[in-house]
Design a protein around this nucleic acid. Structure first.
Lengths: 132, 132
DNA sequence: ATAACGTTTGTTATAATATAACACTTTTTA
DNA sequence: TAAAAAGTGTTATATTATAACAAACGTTAT
């Protein structure tokens, strides 16, 4: 299991890029951006991404195969994530709504399955794109 | 826009396979299953899948890149989907819960974005797998 | 009935996303 | 300080998905 605190060199490099980005980043676009830093292979990116996800530092946007930094801290190691996604500009916003989070964390399937984790993705057109 | 009623030959073939399946199917596993019917290329599968999704006949499970038949009819052309996914046996169940659906359809982002659509995926271990 | 249009098909090629496997190094822990 | 765990670099390959083009099919409008 990865320590909650210390990041390895590659993990730090990948996290920095994702944190600086304005929107979600794809694995290969991260790769192209770090080749000057000596990272040459997809494996190195995917390994770092996996660990960062485990640590809750980043999230994967499943519908886009892309990654964003976690801004919300109360998604407690990615057990409960929700995103707002603009279908026009591709902007992604992490939704940090206590009520929503509580409602969904307490939700139980009729068939008796107990949920450990959920991921919710909302789609629409963002304010900015509506104006254009 | 595709007609809500009639399916083309390939669309029907692909839908049949997905409906008969016990769990989610991957595009290439569908492809291998229909080669005897004269479908040879991924394009043919993906085109059918796209249309079937548009029509609300099937859903894509984003976290698995796999497809399931729609069982719930009240997800009105895939504008509001929720699934229960077992992390052990990979079983997927469509969740048809009016309260949940209403709650999420009425949810609005603080930042003023109006949502047209959402997809929710719950993860856990299903009853069956817990016993083993 | 036929021209015009949109949809579907078949096909080849290729892009984009992700993992396997192996040898080695570094860090942590007992 | 030896053993175990985590991380690295690398080559190769698997998996998922789209581009582009030409032909056939199905509507509908005249």
């Amino acid at each position: 299991m990865a320590q909650a605190q210390t990041l390895s060199r590659n993990q730090q490099i990948v996290l920095n890029i994702i944190e600086k980005a304005k929107g979600p980043l794809k694995a290969y676009s991260i790769l192209f951006n770090v080749q000057k830093k000596g990272i040459n292979a997809p494996q190195q990116i995917y390994r770092a991404l996996d660990k960062l996800i485990e640590m809750g530092k980043i999230h994967k946007i499943e519908s886009k195969n892309a990654f964003v930094a976690c801004r919300s801290s109360d998604c407690e190691i990615s057990k409960a994530t929700a995103f707002s996604i603009c279908e026009s500009c591709e902007m992604v916003d992490e939704i940090s709504d206590t009520k929503l989070s509580k409602y969904l964390s307490g939700f139980n399937h009729k068939k008796g399955m107990k949920f450990k984790r959920f991921n919710l993705e909302f789609f629409g057109i963002c304010k900015k794109c509506k104006k254009d």
